[in-house]
Amino acid sequence: MKTKLLLAAVAASAFVPAAAQAQRIPAAVVAVVDTDRIGRECTACRAAASQLQSQETTLRNRAAALQQQLQTARTPIEQAAAALNGKQPDAALQKRITDYQNQERSAQQELATGQQRLASTQANVNQQIGSRLNTIVASLSASRGATVTLAKGDVMFAAQTVDITNDVLAQLNQQLPSVSVTPLPQTQQPRQQGR
């Protein structure tokens, strides 16, 4: 009985190397790209970042102005309500309260729309750059014989000989000198989570 089990085990082990060999994956040739550097140095990236920063500053300044307007409108209403000592406001004060609430809602909606527009513009810029970057990386990787290309920031070590960042940056600057710093077309707007 032990002999039969031993023979069966030896026979089974003879098939393992052949099965394992059939499942082997060829060795990967790896290239790396410093995507952080690309984002900092590409011509279109820098120009878009500057315009996006300007749009963000404009939105922040508008938020501060709206906040000041609301505070200016709210203070006398609060003072008038406090002077009533718990009594119901008259029709004139009630109208001022309603007008203030409408002004506050309008300000919130304006800022929300501005934030959505800014996010959409950022998404559009990222989409344009990412699309061209992927095409360039795929082309350069193939021309160098690389079967895998990784972001340098995700790699613990990479020899300089596998880094194709300089060539990617040169081609990206040549092929994409600028991008449209506008919101995504309506059909491509990112969907809001939880709505």
Rank of each mutant, 00 (worst) to 15 (best):
R60W: 07
A80M: 11
N166R: 09
L172I: 07
V137Y: 00
R74S: 14
A20D: 06
Q23E: 10
A159K: 06
A14F: 13
L176G: 03
A63Q: 11
S50C: 03
T121P: 08
S180L: 09
L176A: 07
L59K: 01
L6A: 11
A49V: 02
G145A: 06
K95E: 15
S141G: 15
V162A: 08
I164R: 01
A151C: 05
Q69N: 13
Q88H: 05
T75A: 12
A28R: 08
R191A: 13
R117M: 07
A91P: 13
L5R: 11
R195W: 10
S50G: 10
Q21R: 12
T57K: 12
L59Y: 02
D36S: 12
Q67F: 11
R191D: 05
C42H: 04
T182M: 09
C42W: 00
L7W: 06
A107R: 07
Q128K: 13
R74C: 04
D154H: 04
R144L: 00
A22C: 04
S143L: 02
M1V: 10
A48T: 05
Q51S: 05
G86H: 10
A19N: 04
T149E: 02
L118H: 02
Q160C: 03
A119G: 11
L118R: 03
R24E: 12
Q175V: 08
Q53R: 15
T35V: 11
Q193F: 12
L70A: 11
T43N: 08
V181S: 04
N85Q: 15
I38A: 01
K95F: 08
N85I: 05
A28H: 07
C45N: 03
L93M: 13
T3E: 08
R62L: 14
Q108R: 12
K87M: 05
V181Y: 04
V181G: 02
Q53T: 14
A19P: 02
P17D: 06
D167V: 00
A123P: 04
R40D: 08
R96C: 05
Q171C: 00
R96Q: 15
P185H: 14
K95W: 06
S50K: 10
V32C: 02
R132L: 12
L140I: 14
V29N: 09
P26V: 10
V10C: 11
V32T: 13
S13P: 01
T187C: 04
K87Y: 04
Q116I: 06
Q103K: 14
Q186V: 15
A47V: 06
L7A: 14
P183F: 13
G194W: 07
Q127S: 15
Q193S: 10
L169Y: 00
S106Q: 15
K2C: 06
Q171M: 00
A63S: 13
L172F: 09
K95H: 15
L66D: 07
I164W: 01
R60K: 09
Q109N: 15
G114E: 08
M1D: 06
V137K: 01
A28S: 14
N126I: 05
I136H: 00
T58I: 12
P89R: 08
L169V: 02
Q189V: 10
Q109R: 14
T149N: 07
Q94H: 11
K87L: 08
Q189T: 10
K4L: 12
Q128Y: 13
Q189G: 05
I38L: 12
Q188L: 13
T98N: 14
S139E: 15
V16M: 05
Q103P: 03
R96G: 03
C45F: 03
L66W: 07
Q68G: 11
T3F: 07
I136L: 03
Q189Y: 12
R117H: 05
Q69L: 12
